[in-house]
């Protein structure tokens, strides 16, 4: 029974097995990214002949040269920046004041308005009525439409509202006694005090804007307005089946596979760049929102 080790032999074996399993999961998470990277910097010939599994073969940046010289790639990239940052700015500008007001007990009709927001978590009109509504509002094929149409969502509003509700009452009372107006109260007290929640929601907005493609596909017509994800979708998904296009790309230097891998890597890079700063907050965001989904 008595052991001078802090852990018994069984416990240590358990620890190693556990670490090994996690290692396996980590590797399988990373592998697709490494594979993509390897494909994107290999020659088209090496990839099409099935020689690239983990390490790149015949190192070349030809695929990137091809992608970066595509005018549409840059347009899509620029559009995505507009949608991501413009959209996030508008989202925060509408949701922060709204959630703040909803968190104040003196707002008359607060219960009703809160229910009105929460109800949309449970029920929404659906794809077709939403689309027809956008059409009626004249927001088809419009950058502004794509930005404003998805500015708020109930989950983020509730997350912000809950955070504002948790701000100790005396901060507000002290500011009121000092004569702060409602705007000053929000701007000088609540927003600085709620930075973690606001950054969390901001990051949620950025990530979802950056990654979304569906409504851009439905609402936009021209090529000039499409975001990166839609550009990716058109090339990766729609053209995969198109052998003619695929073979037209095939040269010794790059192939359809290396080009699509390069596009994907290029669109992942910004996510990887902000990922460390997101990480700090999403833990918080999850706990902020409790288990709310």
């Amino acid at each position: 029974m008595a052991s001078f080790n802090l852990y018994s032999r069984g416990d240590r074996i358990f620890g190693y097995a556990n670490a090994a399993l996690i290692g396996l999961f980590v590797i399988s998470t990373l592998y697709p990214f490494i594979y993509l990277l390897a494909v994107s910097i290999s020659s088209g010939a090496a990839v099409t002949s099935g020689q690239v599994v983990l390490f790149p073969k015949d190192l070349t940046l030809a695929a990137y040269e091809f992608v970066l010289s595509d005018r549409l790639f840059w347009i899509a990239y620029g559009n995505t920046f507009i949608y991501t940052f413009g959209g996030t700015a508008i989202s925060l500008a509408i949701m922060i004041p709204g959630a703040y007001a909803l968190s104040r007990p003196r707002l008359r009709g607060r219960k009703f308005l809160n229910l009105m927001v929460a109800f949309t978590l449970w029920f929404n009109a659906g794809m077709i009525p939403f689309f027809l509504n956008m059409r009626d509002l004249g927001l088809l094929d419009s950058r502004f439409g794509l930005i404003i149409g998805f500015a708020c969502n109930a989950f983020n509003v509730i997350l912000l509202r809950n955070f504002f509700e948790g701000v100790p009452k005396s901060f507000e009372e002290a500011a009121k006694m000092d004569g702060a107006s409602e705007f000053q109260l929000l701007w000088k007290v609540f927003i600085p005090l709620s930075k973690p929640a606001i950054i969390t929601v901001g990051l949620f907005c950025i990530v979802s804007r950056w990654n979304s493609y569906f409504w851009a596909m439905v609402l936009l017509r021209g090529e000039e307005k499409i975001p990166l994800q839609l550009y990716l979708k058109r090339i990766i998904v729609d053209l995969t089946a198109n052998d003619e296009f695929a073979s037209s790309l095939l040269t010794n230097r790059y192939s359809f596979e290396t080009v699509t891998a390069a596009i994907m890597i290029a669109s992942i890079i910004p996510v990887l760049l902000i990922y460390p700063s997101i990480q700090k907050y999403f833990n918080k965001g999850i706990t902020l929102g409790g288990v709310k989904e």
């Binding site: 100790p168 005396s170 901060f171 009372e173 002290a174 009121k176 006694m177 000092d178 004569g179 702060a180 007290v189 600085p192 005090l193 930075k195």
Partner: peptide, 21 residues
């Protein structure tokens, strides 16, 4: 009358100091 117009000032139990200032 609103608190700000009463010409009174208050010291709170938890001080209500703004942590960001």
């Amino acid at each position: 009358m609103a608190p700000k117009d009463r010409d009174v000032a208050m010291v709170f139990q938890n001080y209500a100091l703004y942590p960001h200032l």
